[in-house]
Computed example of a mutant assay.
Amino acid sequence: MTFRPAPRALATATAALLALTGVAACSTDDSPAGADPERVDVVAGFYPLQFLAEQIGGDAVAVTNLARPGAEPHDLELNPGQVGQISEAELVLFLDGFQPAVDEAVEQNAGDRAFDVAGVQPLLDAAAGGHDHGGEHADEDEHGHDEEEAHAEEEPAEGESGAKDPHVWLDPTRLATIGDKLAERLGAVDPDRAGDYTQRATALRTELEKLDAEFTEGLKTCQRREIVVSHAAFGYLTQKYQLEQIGISGLSPEDEPSPQRLAVVAEEAREHQATTIFFETLVSPKVAETIAQEVGAQTAVLDPIEGLSEGNGADYLSVMRTNLQTLRTALSCS
Protein backbone atom coordinates (compact mmCIF):
# COMPACT_ATOMS: atom_id res chain seq x y z
CA MET A 1 0.00 0.00 0.00
CA THR A 2 1.35 3.43 -0.89
CA PHE A 3 1.74 5.82 2.02
CA ARG A 4 -0.60 8.83 1.77
CA PRO A 5 0.40 11.94 3.73
CA ALA A 6 -2.03 13.38 6.24
CA PRO A 7 -4.08 16.44 5.26
CA ARG A 8 -2.08 19.63 5.48
CA ALA A 9 -4.02 20.91 8.49
CA LEU A 10 -3.22 17.77 10.44
CA ALA A 11 0.42 17.85 9.30
CA THR A 12 0.71 21.49 10.35
CA ALA A 13 -0.80 20.74 13.75
CA THR A 14 1.57 17.82 14.17
CA ALA A 15 4.55 20.01 13.28
CA ALA A 16 3.43 22.62 15.81
CA LEU A 17 3.06 20.01 18.52
CA LEU A 18 6.54 18.67 17.80
CA ALA A 19 7.95 22.18 17.99
CA LEU A 20 6.25 22.78 21.34
CA THR A 21 7.66 19.57 22.75
CA GLY A 22 11.19 20.47 21.68
CA VAL A 23 11.79 17.78 19.07
CA ALA A 24 15.05 18.51 17.24
CA ALA A 25 15.27 18.86 13.45
CA CYS A 26 17.70 15.98 13.35
CA SER A 27 16.65 12.64 14.76
CA THR A 28 17.45 8.96 14.78
CA ASP A 29 13.95 7.80 15.70
CA ASP A 30 11.53 5.82 13.58
CA SER A 31 8.93 8.53 13.06
CA PRO A 32 7.39 8.65 9.58
CA ALA A 33 8.94 10.86 6.95
CA GLY A 34 7.33 14.12 5.93
CA ALA A 35 6.22 15.09 9.46
CA ASP A 36 7.13 18.73 8.78
CA PRO A 37 5.65 19.97 5.48
CA GLU A 38 7.79 23.11 5.51
CA ARG A 39 11.08 21.20 5.43
CA VAL A 40 12.74 18.86 2.96
CA ASP A 41 12.85 15.43 4.56
CA VAL A 42 16.38 13.99 4.28
CA VAL A 43 17.55 10.56 5.46
CA ALA A 44 21.31 10.05 5.93
CA GLY A 45 22.99 6.67 6.24
CA PHE A 46 25.55 7.75 8.84
CA TYR A 47 27.03 10.77 10.60
CA PRO A 48 29.24 12.56 8.00
CA LEU A 49 26.28 12.62 5.60
CA GLN A 50 24.06 13.96 8.38
CA PHE A 51 26.66 16.68 9.00
CA LEU A 52 26.65 17.68 5.32
CA ALA A 53 22.87 17.76 5.11
CA GLU A 54 22.53 19.87 8.25
CA GLN A 55 25.23 22.32 7.21
CA ILE A 56 23.93 22.81 3.69
CA GLY A 57 20.23 22.39 4.37
CA GLY A 58 20.06 24.55 7.48
CA ASP A 59 16.54 25.18 8.75
CA ALA A 60 15.10 24.13 5.39
CA VAL A 61 15.71 20.42 6.00
CA ALA A 62 14.77 17.81 8.59
CA VAL A 63 17.56 15.24 8.78
CA THR A 64 17.28 11.69 10.11
CA ASN A 65 20.46 9.68 10.69
CA LEU A 66 19.86 5.93 10.34
CA ALA A 67 22.90 5.13 12.53
CA ARG A 68 22.33 5.98 16.17
CA PRO A 69 25.00 7.89 18.16
CA GLY A 70 27.57 5.56 19.67
CA ALA A 71 26.75 2.72 17.25
CA GLU A 72 29.22 1.37 14.68
CA PRO A 73 27.57 2.09 11.30
CA HIS A 74 29.22 -0.54 9.05
CA ASP A 75 26.98 -3.38 10.17
CA LEU A 76 23.80 -1.36 10.73
CA GLU A 77 20.61 -3.41 10.53
CA LEU A 78 17.45 -1.52 9.63
CA ASN A 79 14.13 -1.97 11.35
CA PRO A 80 10.83 -1.65 9.43
CA GLY A 81 10.38 1.93 10.59
CA GLN A 82 13.75 2.94 9.13
CA VAL A 83 12.94 1.23 5.83
CA GLY A 84 9.74 3.27 5.85
CA GLN A 85 11.75 6.44 6.37
CA ILE A 86 13.83 5.62 3.30
CA SER A 87 10.65 4.94 1.32
CA GLU A 88 9.10 8.30 2.20
CA ALA A 89 12.13 10.63 2.30
CA GLU A 90 12.48 13.33 -0.30
CA LEU A 91 16.24 12.70 -0.45
CA VAL A 92 18.27 9.73 0.81
CA LEU A 93 22.02 10.18 1.29
CA PHE A 94 24.12 7.03 1.32
CA LEU A 95 27.53 5.73 0.35
CA ASP A 96 27.29 2.59 -1.74
CA GLY A 97 29.35 -0.26 -0.29
CA PHE A 98 29.65 1.15 3.22
CA GLN A 99 26.39 -0.08 4.79
CA PRO A 100 25.02 -3.16 3.01
CA ALA A 101 21.62 -3.00 4.70
CA VAL A 102 21.19 0.63 3.65
CA ASP A 103 22.32 -0.18 0.10
CA GLU A 104 19.66 -2.88 -0.17
CA ALA A 105 16.90 -0.70 1.26
CA VAL A 106 17.82 2.19 -1.01
CA GLU A 107 17.81 -0.03 -4.08
CA GLN A 108 14.38 -1.41 -3.23
CA ASN A 109 12.68 1.72 -1.89
CA ALA A 110 14.39 5.02 -2.74
CA GLY A 111 14.35 5.15 -6.54
CA ASP A 112 15.53 8.44 -8.01
CA ARG A 113 15.40 10.10 -4.57
CA ALA A 114 18.72 8.44 -3.65
CA PHE A 115 22.02 10.32 -3.74
CA ASP A 116 25.06 8.02 -3.69
CA VAL A 117 27.98 10.18 -2.57
CA ALA A 118 30.41 7.48 -3.73
CA GLY A 119 29.62 8.56 -7.29
CA VAL A 120 30.76 12.17 -6.87
CA GLN A 121 34.47 11.39 -7.30
CA PRO A 122 36.32 8.11 -7.93
CA LEU A 123 36.99 6.33 -4.66
CA LEU A 124 40.53 5.34 -3.75
CA ASP A 125 41.59 1.73 -3.91
CA ALA A 126 41.38 -0.02 -0.56
CA ALA A 127 45.17 -0.24 -0.36
CA ALA A 128 45.73 3.49 -0.96
CA GLY A 129 47.60 5.34 1.73
CA GLY A 130 48.99 2.10 3.09
CA HIS A 131 52.48 1.06 3.96
CA ASP A 132 54.93 0.09 1.24
CA HIS A 133 56.47 -3.26 2.12
CA GLY A 134 59.02 -3.10 -0.70
CA GLY A 135 62.73 -3.03 -0.05
CA GLU A 136 63.10 0.52 -1.31
CA HIS A 137 61.02 1.96 1.48
CA ALA A 138 63.82 1.87 4.01
CA ASP A 139 65.71 4.41 1.90
CA GLU A 140 62.73 6.75 1.39
CA ASP A 141 62.94 10.27 2.73
CA GLU A 142 60.39 13.05 2.60
CA HIS A 143 60.86 13.30 -1.17
CA GLY A 144 59.66 9.73 -1.55
CA HIS A 145 56.12 10.89 -0.90
CA ASP A 146 55.84 13.03 -4.04
CA GLU A 147 54.89 10.08 -6.21
CA GLU A 148 52.27 9.01 -3.66
CA GLU A 149 50.70 12.44 -3.71
CA ALA A 150 50.56 12.51 -7.48
CA HIS A 151 49.03 9.05 -7.56
CA ALA A 152 46.37 10.12 -5.07
CA GLU A 153 45.01 12.61 -7.58
CA GLU A 154 44.51 9.93 -10.22
CA GLU A 155 41.62 7.53 -10.45
CA PRO A 156 42.93 4.48 -8.61
CA ALA A 157 43.43 1.24 -10.44
CA GLU A 158 41.37 -1.70 -9.34
CA GLY A 159 43.20 -3.81 -6.82
CA GLU A 160 43.21 -7.57 -6.95
CA SER A 161 40.08 -7.66 -4.81
CA GLY A 162 38.51 -4.62 -6.47
CA ALA A 163 37.71 -3.16 -3.04
CA LYS A 164 37.36 0.58 -2.66
CA ASP A 165 37.90 2.67 0.47
CA PRO A 166 34.61 4.38 1.44
CA HIS A 167 36.06 6.76 4.08
CA VAL A 168 36.09 9.70 1.66
CA TRP A 169 35.02 12.27 4.28
CA LEU A 170 38.47 12.13 5.93
CA ASP A 171 39.76 14.33 3.09
CA PRO A 172 38.06 17.70 3.78
CA THR A 173 38.41 18.84 0.17
CA ARG A 174 36.59 15.77 -1.11
CA LEU A 175 33.86 16.33 1.47
CA ALA A 176 33.50 19.90 0.20
CA THR A 177 32.98 18.64 -3.35
CA ILE A 178 30.31 16.21 -2.13
CA GLY A 179 28.70 19.17 -0.38
CA ASP A 180 28.57 21.15 -3.62
CA LYS A 181 26.76 18.25 -5.32
CA LEU A 182 24.39 17.88 -2.37
CA ALA A 183 23.45 21.55 -2.71
CA GLU A 184 22.55 20.89 -6.35
CA ARG A 185 20.38 17.92 -5.39
CA LEU A 186 18.60 19.87 -2.64
CA GLY A 187 18.04 22.71 -5.08
CA ALA A 188 16.42 20.30 -7.51
CA VAL A 189 14.09 19.00 -4.76
CA ASP A 190 13.35 22.49 -3.41
CA PRO A 191 13.93 25.06 -6.22
CA ASP A 192 12.59 28.02 -4.20
CA ARG A 193 15.55 27.73 -1.81
CA ALA A 194 18.21 26.56 -4.28
CA GLY A 195 20.21 29.74 -3.82
CA ASP A 196 20.28 29.27 -0.06
CA TYR A 197 21.65 25.74 -0.44
CA THR A 198 24.36 26.93 -2.79
CA GLN A 199 25.31 29.75 -0.43
CA ARG A 200 25.60 27.41 2.54
CA ALA A 201 27.63 24.91 0.52
CA THR A 202 30.04 27.71 -0.40
CA ALA A 203 30.36 28.69 3.26
CA LEU A 204 30.99 25.07 4.22
CA ARG A 205 33.63 24.74 1.50
CA THR A 206 35.42 27.75 3.00
CA GLU A 207 35.43 26.05 6.43
CA LEU A 208 36.64 22.75 5.00
CA GLU A 209 39.41 24.42 3.00
CA LYS A 210 40.52 26.17 6.18
CA LEU A 211 40.61 22.78 7.91
CA ASP A 212 42.61 21.34 5.01
CA ALA A 213 45.14 24.17 5.31
CA GLU A 214 45.49 23.48 9.06
CA PHE A 215 46.24 19.80 8.36
CA THR A 216 48.69 20.63 5.59
CA GLU A 217 50.62 23.06 7.78
CA GLY A 218 50.33 21.03 10.96
CA LEU A 219 51.66 17.82 9.42
CA LYS A 220 54.29 19.38 7.18
CA THR A 221 57.29 18.72 9.42
CA CYS A 222 57.09 15.58 11.55
CA GLN A 223 59.74 13.18 12.81
CA ARG A 224 57.63 10.20 11.71
CA ARG A 225 55.06 9.76 8.95
CA GLU A 226 53.71 6.27 9.67
CA ILE A 227 50.56 5.79 11.74
CA VAL A 228 49.57 2.42 13.19
CA VAL A 229 45.76 2.27 13.28
CA SER A 230 43.24 -0.29 14.49
CA HIS A 231 41.58 -0.50 11.07
CA ALA A 232 42.58 0.86 7.68
CA ALA A 233 40.10 3.74 7.56
CA PHE A 234 42.59 6.56 7.00
CA GLY A 235 43.66 6.11 3.38
CA TYR A 236 42.22 9.45 2.25
CA LEU A 237 43.81 11.33 5.13
CA THR A 238 47.21 9.68 4.68
CA GLN A 239 47.21 10.19 0.90
CA LYS A 240 46.20 13.83 1.26
CA TYR A 241 48.79 14.72 3.91
CA GLN A 242 51.66 12.45 2.81
CA LEU A 243 51.45 10.00 5.69
CA GLU A 244 51.36 6.20 5.63
CA GLN A 245 48.90 4.02 7.50
CA ILE A 246 49.69 0.59 8.91
CA GLY A 247 46.32 -1.01 9.54
CA ILE A 248 46.03 -3.74 12.17
CA SER A 249 42.82 -4.89 10.44
CA GLY A 250 41.26 -4.04 7.09
CA LEU A 251 38.54 -1.63 6.01
CA SER A 252 36.00 -2.99 8.48
CA PRO A 253 36.71 -2.60 12.20
CA GLU A 254 35.01 -5.96 12.72
CA ASP A 255 37.77 -7.80 10.81
CA GLU A 256 39.79 -9.94 13.19
CA PRO A 257 43.53 -9.71 12.45
CA SER A 258 45.41 -12.99 12.32
CA PRO A 259 48.33 -13.68 14.68
CA GLN A 260 50.62 -13.34 11.65
CA ARG A 261 49.20 -9.89 10.92
CA LEU A 262 49.66 -8.81 14.52
CA ALA A 263 53.29 -9.91 14.37
CA VAL A 264 53.87 -7.96 11.15
CA VAL A 265 52.30 -4.81 12.59
CA ALA A 266 54.36 -5.07 15.76
CA GLU A 267 57.53 -5.45 13.69
CA GLU A 268 56.69 -2.38 11.59
CA ALA A 269 55.81 -0.37 14.67
CA ARG A 270 59.25 -1.12 16.08
CA GLU A 271 60.94 -0.41 12.75
CA HIS A 272 59.38 3.04 12.55
CA GLN A 273 59.79 3.72 16.27
CA ALA A 274 56.07 4.32 16.66
CA THR A 275 55.27 5.92 20.00
CA THR A 276 51.50 5.60 19.61
CA ILE A 277 49.10 2.89 18.47
CA PHE A 278 45.76 4.38 17.49
CA PHE A 279 42.34 2.96 18.26
CA GLU A 280 38.91 4.50 17.72
CA THR A 281 35.89 5.45 19.74
CA LEU A 282 33.25 3.00 18.48
CA VAL A 283 35.19 -0.29 18.67
CA SER A 284 37.16 -2.15 21.34
CA PRO A 285 40.73 -0.91 21.93
CA LYS A 286 41.99 -4.34 23.05
CA VAL A 287 43.97 -5.22 19.90
CA ALA A 288 45.62 -1.80 19.78
CA GLU A 289 46.47 -2.10 23.47
CA THR A 290 48.05 -5.52 22.84
CA ILE A 291 50.31 -4.14 20.11
CA ALA A 292 51.19 -1.09 22.20
CA GLN A 293 52.16 -3.21 25.18
CA GLU A 294 54.32 -5.44 23.03
CA VAL A 295 56.29 -2.60 21.42
CA GLY A 296 56.39 -0.25 24.41
CA ALA A 297 54.07 2.39 22.91
CA GLN A 298 51.08 4.22 24.27
CA THR A 299 47.56 4.27 22.80
CA ALA A 300 45.45 7.21 21.66
CA VAL A 301 42.16 7.78 19.88
CA LEU A 302 42.25 8.63 16.16
CA ASP A 303 38.62 8.98 15.15
CA PRO A 304 37.49 7.92 11.64
CA ILE A 305 34.28 9.90 12.32
CA GLU A 306 32.01 7.14 11.09
CA GLY A 307 29.71 8.17 13.95
CA LEU A 308 29.77 10.33 17.04
CA SER A 309 29.76 9.25 20.65
CA GLU A 310 26.46 10.09 22.26
CA GLY A 311 26.15 13.42 24.02
CA ASN A 312 29.72 14.70 23.62
CA GLY A 313 28.76 17.90 21.79
CA ALA A 314 31.33 17.37 19.03
CA ASP A 315 30.89 17.71 15.29
CA TYR A 316 32.92 16.79 12.21
CA LEU A 317 35.07 19.92 12.34
CA SER A 318 35.93 19.66 16.03
CA VAL A 319 36.73 15.93 15.82
CA MET A 320 38.98 16.48 12.80
CA ARG A 321 40.87 19.19 14.69
CA THR A 322 41.24 16.87 17.67
CA ASN A 323 42.61 14.24 15.27
CA LEU A 324 45.14 16.76 13.98
CA GLN A 325 46.45 17.54 17.46
CA THR A 326 46.62 13.83 18.26
CA LEU A 327 48.64 13.17 15.11
CA ARG A 328 50.98 16.11 15.76
CA THR A 329 51.75 14.76 19.23
CA ALA A 330 52.19 11.15 18.13
CA LEU A 331 54.37 12.01 15.11
CA SER A 332 56.44 14.66 16.93
CA CYS A 333 55.54 17.41 14.49
CA SER A 334 57.14 20.81 14.89
Rank of each mutant, 00 (worst) to 15 (best):
E153L: 10
T198L: 04
N109V: 02
R113D: 08
L175K: 09
G129W: 12
T177C: 00
A194Y: 02
P166L: 14
G144M: 09
E142F: 02
A183L: 07
S161H: 15
S161Y: 13
V120C: 01
E147A: 12
A163T: 13
D141N: 15
E107M: 06
R174S: 06
E155V: 08
A203W: 01
A126C: 05
H167T: 08
D125K: 09
D125L: 05
E154V: 09
R174F: 01
G129V: 11
P172E: 02
V120A: 00
G162A: 11
D192W: 05
A176G: 03
Q108K: 15
H133R: 14
A157R: 11
L170C: 02
A194E: 10
G162I: 14
H133T: 15
A194L: 05
P191Q: 12
W169R: 06
G195K: 06
H133K: 13
A163S: 12
G195M: 09
G179K: 04
D125R: 14
E107N: 14
V117Y: 01
L182Y: 02
G134H: 12
A128E: 09
A126D: 12
P156F: 05
Y197T: 01
W169M: 13
A201E: 01
D190H: 13
E147L: 10
T177P: 00
E184S: 02
A138T: 15
A127F: 11
E149G: 07
G119L: 05
E184I: 01
R200V: 01
A157F: 02
G111E: 08
P172L: 08
D196H: 12
E160D: 13
D132N: 13
Q199G: 04
D139Y: 08
G179R: 04
A126W: 06
D146G: 07
H131I: 13
V106Q: 11
G159I: 11
K181F: 00
A138R: 14
G187R: 05
E149Y: 12
V120R: 00
A150I: 12
D125A: 15
G144A: 15
H145L: 15
D141Q: 12
T173G: 02
D125F: 07
A194C: 08
G144K: 09
W169T: 03
